[in-house]
């Protein structure tokens, strides 16, 4: 196989190119009309260190640019989180949500929203909700991981079942919280869970980038073990893979990336499931291409979806989680039907 592969296959130059184009497109989408030439001027001025002080400049530079940037990071993180989970479960229908991550984050965010009135001021800091959601996601995934880890061996089936149990429990607890919430809290919880890329400013985004990059690199380093895991744990072990260590790293990376993203954005469904899957359909199952291509497709898809959110009902805005779920769910159903046909 290797011999007939060109030195620079399509994805190594085609995807980065598309990535830049899609970011440009996303930057140009929005309720506030900014003509392309104007956009170039504003970006050029900012690049030279003299950003304009008109409204168009501030829309482009302080609103859209950070949304595209966060969208790219979040899309990449969610997609790679999906890649890790699908490699771990050896199942293309796996999703970080399976390990109770999103529901744990949502539960923590809801709990904080409801108790915010009775907490000291430090706790209602703007960082409080992301931090709590992040810890909530880590906690539930950690719990699932601990329970399914028997004597240093992770049993994938029990992890799956435990994930379902934790999801159900978190769902029920959120239900209880919604029941005791007052109107304003109810609304805040609903808005948070819909998801938005608009809550992240420049500094937070830089921090997120710094936190996410090592995980991206680590996933890339795990590409060979992930490939070998596809043929089963026993085979992978006989080929020299530290199976348990790899599995632990996969859970860790996925959990780290997705918790970070979800903590800031709220729930954004189906990116982690659909993007790796599309990538596999186009570029094949090898993680050597799957990892970088998923990363780039994720970084492409989410900013574009967010561009749609900003324009479809402008000047009002759609929640991003709704748009990705609307686009992702039909695709998921299609996948299920296709699998059924094949079987």
């Amino acid at each position: 196989m290797r011999a007939i592969e060109p030195r620079f296959p399509l994805w190594t130059w085609g995807l980065p190119l598309l990535l830049v184009v899609s970011w440009g497109m996303s930057l140009s989408l929005g309720a506030f009309k900014i003509p392309p030439l104007e956009m170039v001027r504003i970006l050029w001025e900012a690049f030279r260190g003299q950003p304009g002080d008109d409204v168009a400049s501030s829309v482009l530079l302080s609103l859209r640019l950070s949304r595209v940037g966060f969208g790219a990071l979040a899309g990449a993180g969610l997609a790679l989180g999906g890649v890790c989970m699908q490699a771990l479960f050896r199942n293309p229908l796996a999703d970080p949500g399976l390990m109770g991550l999103s529901s744990g984050a949502a539960l923590a965010a809801a709990a904080l929203t409801i108790s915010a009135g009775s907490l000291p001021e430090v706790m209602v800091h703007p960082l409080a909700i992301p931090a709590t959601a992040f810890l909530g996601g880590l906690f539930t995934t950690g719990l699932v991981y601990r329970v399914s880890n028997r004597g240093g061996r992770i049993r994938v089936e029990s992890m799956l079942l435990m994930g379902i149990a934790v999801n159900a429990l978190c769902g029920a607890l959120i239900g209880v919280l919604l029941l005791v919430a007052d109107d304003a809290q109810l609304r805040n919880i609903t808005f948070w869970s819909f998801g938005s890329l608009g809550r992240v400013g420049g500094t937070a985004m830089a921090g997120l980038g710094v936190a996410l990059l090592p995980a991206f690199v680590l996933v890339w380093m795990l590409r060979h073990p992930m490939n070998l895991l596809l043929s089963g744990e026993a085979d992978a072990a006989s080929l020299g893979v530290h199976v348990e260590r790899t599995k632990a790293l996969l859970v860790g990376c996925s959990c780290w990336m997705v918790s970070l993203v979800v903590a800031w954005s709220g729930l954004i469904g189906f990116v982690g499931l659909v993007i790796p899957h599309i990538t596999r359909l186009i570029f094949g199952p090898s993680h050597r291409t799957l990892v970088p291509a998923s990363l780039m497709l994720g970084a492409m898809f989410l900013p574009l979806a967010d561009g749609l959110c900003r324009t479809v009902i402008a000047p009002a805005e759609l929640p991003i989680g709704m748009v990705t779920a609307l686009m992702g769910t039909p695709f998921f159903i299609y996948l299920l039907i296709r699998r059924g046909v094949r079987a």
Partner: peptide, 14 residues
């Protein structure tokens, strides 16, 4: 510009 508790910055600025 949408529901008043959930407006978007860019939508209002537009």
């Amino acid at each position: 510009v949408g529901y008043y508790r959930m407006v978007s910055t860019e939508g209002v600025l537009s």
